[in-house]
Design a protein around this nucleic acid. Structure first.
Lengths: 135, 135
DNA sequence: ATAAATCCTATCGTTTTAGTAGATTAATAA
DNA sequence: TTATTAATCTACTAAAACGATAGGATTTAT
């Protein structure tokens, strides 16, 4: 299941991308327009800022805004920040690889085999989808 | 993330599929050979039996065994039983559809759009993969 | 100064996950 | 019939993750 964090994060990014200008948009507006708990969204936008997807401006007239063109914002990056690994098992993860402690040999593991396919197909989509494709 | 339940279930099924005969295999053997907690595996195999993927025989000489050919056992069925919906959001699920309460219109929802693609690609794989493909 | 906004830390209730324990039932072999 | 083997059923539990919420500190524009 996709976490609400990812869901809300994607909605917020899309909301910002839809705006004509790139002026700062306050959290309150984003939260209201998308039916998201403001406090929860705060932490999500903060995370997106810390990882370089968004920038923010403090104080009156402040808010969050995109620093890159929507067509430059890849889903691979967004999903990895919000949801974590794209792979469903660590042993097939590119960025978060970990060996399974119960599995003696990845080469013959059925789960590994299947999840590798699933990861590849998801990756294919995320790599070829930008924020602008979602508007 | 794939649950251990699904992972263990898949491993157990593969283990059974690899055997030449279709004689009942006791839980203990499956658990040991695959480094799975026996008690946990019990509940998983029980679930697979109740949903018609496996059959069982009680008492001495008993155990679990496949009732269908591995090539007849589709990943769509196995995954749905063990992991639940293939879709990452209920609003794009074929078998477990639910409307999002926060979303006014699926047609314009960016999350919906993206997750539909992801579901389709996963479905494509699961539909075209059987247990025999994992051996 | 004041209002508006982000930033930061901590906490919290609920649900899910991954198991464990123990008793019961059924089949088989002796 | 009795002992053994193995599935079945019910109940419980510890830990982690999830989805928030609370409250204050800090920054900026007017």
């Amino acid at each position: 299941m996709l976490s609400k964090k990812t869901k809300y994060g994607l909605k917020a990014l899309t909301y910002l991308a839809k705006k004509e200008d790139r002026n700062p948009v306050p959290i309150g507006e984003i939260a209201q327009q998308n039916n998201i708990s403001q406090k929860f969204l705060e932490s999500i936008l903060l995370l997106l800022r810390r990882t370089g997807v968004l920038a923010s401006k403090k104080g009156k007239g402040g808010g969050y805004y995109l620093i890159k063109e929507p067509s430059e914002i890849l889903m691979t990056d967004v999903i990895r920040v919000l949801e974590g690994p794209i792979a469903m098992v660590p042993c097939v993860s590119l960025n978060f690889y970990e060996k399974c402690d119960d599995c003696p040999d990845e080469g013959t593991c059925s789960v590994h085999k299947l999840m590798l396919k699933v990861r590849d197909s998801a990756l294919e989509i995320y790599r070829n989808t930008t924020l602008s494709n979602l508007i």
